[in-house]
Write a protein that binds this DNA or RNA. Structure first.
Lengths: 235, 235
DNA sequence: TCGATTTCCCTAACATCGTTAGAGATGGCG
DNA sequence: CGCCATCTCTAACGATGTTAGGGAAATCGA
C-alpha cells in the first residue's frame, strides 16, 4: 500500500518491472550508495536514506544485501573498479608504478570517503581492489623485486597512496578552520616551534607532496634494486 | 536512587568524593575509554558501556564531555601521549627518525583501533599528536629539509607509519581467515597470478615490511638531500 | 552558622539507527 | 487455473547518541 503522503494514485504509481529495467538490484543499490556517499559523506549513509533514493523502504534492501557493511564494502570496491587497471608497459617500471598510483589516487580523491574505509574494515578485498594490487605487484615483480622485498615494496607504495589520500581528505579543511588551527598553534609556538614556523600541518599542495613523496620512495626502491642486480636489465 | 539490582545498601554504596579521589573526570573517562577500546574494539565503544565501567550512567558523561567523538579524539591523543616524545639527537638524523617512528608504530600497535581514527576524523590534532609531529618535522628540518620538500618528507613518513599500522591491524587476521582468502585467490589465479604466486596479500612479517619500507623511504630522502647539499654537514 | 549557589550525577525520554519477522502482491510455469 | 518462487511491503525490536531537567552534595559569602 502507498504511504499516506503519496499523492499518486495506484495506477500512476510505477509498477514493478514497468520496463525491462530491474527495479532493485545490487548494482543499483551500490550505485546509489556511491552517489549518496559522495554527496553527503559516510556519516549520513543510512539504510533508510539509501532506500529513499531508490524509491523503496529500508527493509527491501535486505533482500539483495546482507548488511550495511556489505554495502560499504561494495561501494569501496566499485570505486576501485572505476578506473580500468591498465597494464601499461612503459620503458621503465617506474613510469608504470607512477601511472598506476596516480590513477589510484585520483579515484580515491573523487570519492573522499573511500580512502578511510579499508583502514578500518577487515577484508575489504573485493575483486577490483585485488585487480589493482595485482597490477602493482606484478609491475614490481617485473622490475626485479621478489620475496620479502617485493612484499615490503608493495605495501610501502600501497600505504603511500592510501595514506596520502586519507590524510588529504581528512585535513582538507576550510580556510576558516585552517586560520583557527594556525592561530591556536601560534599561541603555543614555544611548544611547537618547527610546526609554527612551517605553516602548521596543513599543506597547500597535496598533489606536490604526494608526487615528491612517491619520488623519494621510488628513488629508494630503485637504489636497492640497483645494489642487488648491478646493471641487470628487467626480466 | 540505586538500581533495583544493586544489592549494596545505601550506606555501603560509595558516596561522592569518598576520599580526595575524583569520582568522574575527563582523565578517568579517557582512561576507561582506552581500556574499553583495547579490550573490545571501536565498534563496542558505547557511551552506556563506557559509563558502566565507571559505575555511572551514560548521561553523566556529558557533563565532562561534549560528545562521543570527543571521547574518541581524546583517546587517540592519549595513545600518542603514552610514549614520551624523546628528542634524542643521534649521530645521524636517520637514526632519530627511525627511533621516533618505531616508537610511534609500537604505540599504535598496542592500541590497534587508534591508527584508523585519524584517517576519518577532521582535526584529531591534539597536543600529544602535535608534539610527535613537532619532533618528526624538527628532526627533518635539522637534517636540511625546508619548504615543500620538508612538507613532503614529513607527510611521507607520517603516512608510512599510520598506513602500515592500520594496514597491519586491519589485515591481522586469523589463520583460518587467511586460509580462506588464499583459497579463494587460488581459484582465480588466472586473474591474479602475481598475488597468488606471492602468498596473497597477507604478510607474515609486518615488522620486516615496515622496516624495509622505511629504509626505502629514508634512502630516497637521503639521496635527495645529498644531491642538494653535496657533502654539506648537518645544520 | 546558614542560606544561596555551584557542581555534578541522576531518571526519563526522544529520534534515529540496523535489522528481523512475516504478510502480501506479482510474475512465471505446470 | 493454481502453485511457487521472487520481491517489496508494514510493523516492530533493541540499541544508540544525546537532551531536558530534577535533586543531592559540596562550596562559598555573610
Amino acid at each position: 500500500m502507498a504511504k499516506a503522503g503519496d499523492v499518486r494514485s495506484v495506477w500512476l504509481r510505477p509498477r514493478r518491472a514497468t520496463r525491462g529495467e530491474p527495479p532493485l538490484t545490487v548494482t543499483r543499490i551500490v550505485e546509489a550508495a556511491v552517489a549518496l556517499l559522495d554527496e553527503e559523506g559516510i556519516d549520513r549513509l543510512t539504510m533508510r536514506r539509501l532506500a529513499d533514493r531508490l524509491a523503496v523502504v529500508a527493509p527491501s534492501l535486505y533482500w539483495h544485501v546482507d548488511t550495511k557493511d556489505d554495502v560499504i564494502d561494495l561501494a569501496v570496491d566499485a570505486v576501485f573498479g572505476e578506473v580500468p587497471a591498465g597494464t601499461g608497459h612503459a620503458a621503465h617500471w617506474r613510469e608504470d608504478v607512477t601511472t598506476v598510483l596516480t590513477a589510484w589516487r585520483t579515484a580515491l580523491l573523487r570519492h573522499p570517503w573511500a580512502a578511510a574505509v579499508p583502514a578500518r574494515r577487515r577484508p575489504t578485498i573485493g575483486p577490483n581492489f585485488l585487480a589493482w594490487m595485482e597490477v602493482l605487484q606484478s609491475t614490481l615483480a617485473r622490475a626485479g623485486f621478489a620475496g620479502p622485498a617485493l612484499s615490503a615494496a608493495t605495501w610501502a607504495l600501497y600505504n603511500h597512496v592510501m595514506g596520502s589520500a586519507s590524510t588529504e581528505t581528512a585535513l582538507h579543511i576550510t580556510d576558516e578552520e585552517r586560520r583557527i588551527g594556525q592561530e591556536q598553534l601560534l599561541t603555543h609556538r614555544d611548544r611547537y616551534p618547527t610546526l609554527a614556523a612551517n605553516g602548521y600541518l596543513y599543506d597547500d599542495d597535496w598533489t606536490g607532496s604526494f608526487t615528491a613523496g612517491l619520488a623519494y620512495l621510488l628513488d629508494g626502491l630503485e637504489a636497492r634494486l640497483g645494489s642487488v642486480f648491478k646493471g641487470a636489465s628487467d626480466q
